[in-house]
Amino acid sequence: MLSDAAVQRIQEIVKEYPNTKSALVPALYVAQRDAGGWLPREAMVEVAEELDLPESHVYSVATFYSMFYLKPIGENVIQVCTTSPCGLRGANEIVDCFKKRLGVGLNETTADGKFTLMEVECLAACNVAPMAQINEDYYVNITEERVDEIVTMLGRGEKPPYAEFAQNLKGAHPIAFTDAELGIDVSGIKPADPVVKKEKPAEAAPTEAK
């Protein structure tokens, strides 16, 4: 089930750690991307095999963290932060706007499978509240008009111009991507000059006690 590219990326990540277990969370992101946005049981089993871990451990970790989805989810996942600081600035009203625009309630997916609406806890962006995480991007200072625009554009498969990533990562975590896929190219950067070690002035030899 895991594609060769996914297995290759997992093996690349494993090299960064002294054991395979540490690579589990990144590997689950790779598997989730590979499976199209959620983690089917078979994908978890293959991650367990790939990392030589008990299946039960993989499942226990996958169920602990909120960013892994164990059931199919909408193409676009809209997560509005409603924790107190956002709540003070109209986050709940924005949730209502999304509900109305999409015709779904919280934790529900639209009939066409395009959108899932959720409420999440603090995303550390209280300065730009109300805000939401939608797929791989933060959308900040959301207004009622923006709700309509965001839904319309994402529904057409376009990214609103104020999204953080120019690329469409389809909601997958960037750790699941190679440098080349993310467009990270440092071939034009030349090494810096080496440092010249300055010897510390030798400490004065202790004078012999008389």
Partner: peptide
Amino acid sequence: GEFMQGYATLRRALAEARAR
């Protein structure tokens, strides 16, 4: 995990620092 942009920014910066 939610800091996907932060992660991507750091990853690019780290690649630059390694190249230097």
